[in-house]
Design a protein around this nucleic acid. Structure first.
Lengths: 189, 189
DNA sequence: CTTGTCATTTGGCAATTGCCAAACGACACC
DNA sequence: GGTGTCGTTTGGCAATTGCCAAATGACAAG
């Protein structure tokens, strides 16, 4: 909970009353490995702050293969933000790939905070654009690197994460086959 | 100018007085092919709505090669949004690849609109997250497609654009060499 | 018209990566 | 212990793409 407040304070100021209000609206939630926090076709009813565990934002093609767009891990927000904000159907899945603990805000709580705390919307606008811009740059950079460079960059940028996610999901994030990732790992040891 | 207002109205409501205020703050500007709208290391002082022409958002590596992250063309906003919002140094270049006509808002005008029009920040928050999310998905999708598929998808998604941008810049957007793109074009005719 | 410059095309070859199939390892269940 | 399942590793081969170099084309300047 302190971590959540510290995270928010990076993006704007909040006084003690506002912090107390936020804390009163945050709700602890755990979800099991393999279950979905949010599903394509459904409307996102909550936004979560990850206190423990890893999720992946992913989609499936017409033959059921899953592709990882990115991972979300401790001390980051997770949600289909456009679905949550405008209450439109989501286009992606958010899947827990380990057991996860989250602090969540329901849409109603989020709206109340947005009405009570002037800085709230500005804080989330900043978080959203910073995070999305970074994700976009990461994908865009990967496009012009070879597979091994992408993997090494992932190792450096997300220390420890490579050992916590299945090889096949990491491979689809990197845009390569599981076999290729397995060979790359053998190469660089 | 009507196009700009119509674009904004897609993301929120504005009454006639607000529309008039917006129009009074928008400033016409032209920039020449080959010049920068915004530069890495500098603070973005304006946000532009493209009425004519094409720009690219790009960066350079340590040996001076330029890589295109994406293109911005008619009836879209262009800016380094994080630099513009927080007045921090930009990390990328925005280059006119044809002569361009823009409607621009200076940081001061933008702030005034933000103070006078309650919906203003919400409109730009939606535009920002929608646009960034689409860019991010596009890059992420490209990562798992072969070069020809990426090019065909670009042709379908941005009709006419392929003939208006230099092959070398399109190649770097697609993450392939100019030679490869040239061969792909020969293949599919 | 000639020249120079720069972007694009093309060829040949090498490296990367994908695809398919088989083997292996971990692990739960009987 | 045996069996099945699933994820990962490995091998062999084919396709894609990059790299380097040369040829061609477009175009502006003299």
């Amino acid at each position: 909970m302190e971590a959540l407040i510290r995270y928010l304070l990076q993006y704007g100021n909040l006084n003690p009353e506002q912090i107390a209000l936020i804390q009163s609206k945050a709700e602890a939630k755990t979800i099991e490995k393999g279950t979905y926090f949010s599903e394509a076709g459904k409307i996102a009813g909550q936004i979560g702050y990850v206190t423990e565990g890893i999720l992946r934002v992913c989609y499936y093609n017409n033959i059921g293969e899953g592709f990882t767009r990115y991972f979300v891990y401790e001390n980051r927000f997770v949600a289909d933000i456009n679905s949550f904000r405008d209450q439109l159907p989501s286009s992606e899945y958010i899947e827990a790939i380990t057991d996860c603990s989250l602090m969540i805000f329901s849409k109603d709580s989020f709206t109340e905070l947005s009405n009570s705390i002037p800085a709230w919307n500005s804080i989330f606008a900043k978080i959203t654009s910073n995070v999305l811009e970074n994700k976009m740059k990461a994908s865009s950079n990967m496009l012009v690197q070879d597979a091994q460079t992408r993997y090494i960059h992932f190792l450096e940028h997300y220390p420890g994460l490579a050992n916590r996610v299945p090889l096949s999901m990491l491979a689809s994030y990197l845009g390569i086959t599981p076999s290729s990732l397995s060979r790359i790992r053998k190469n660089i040891t």
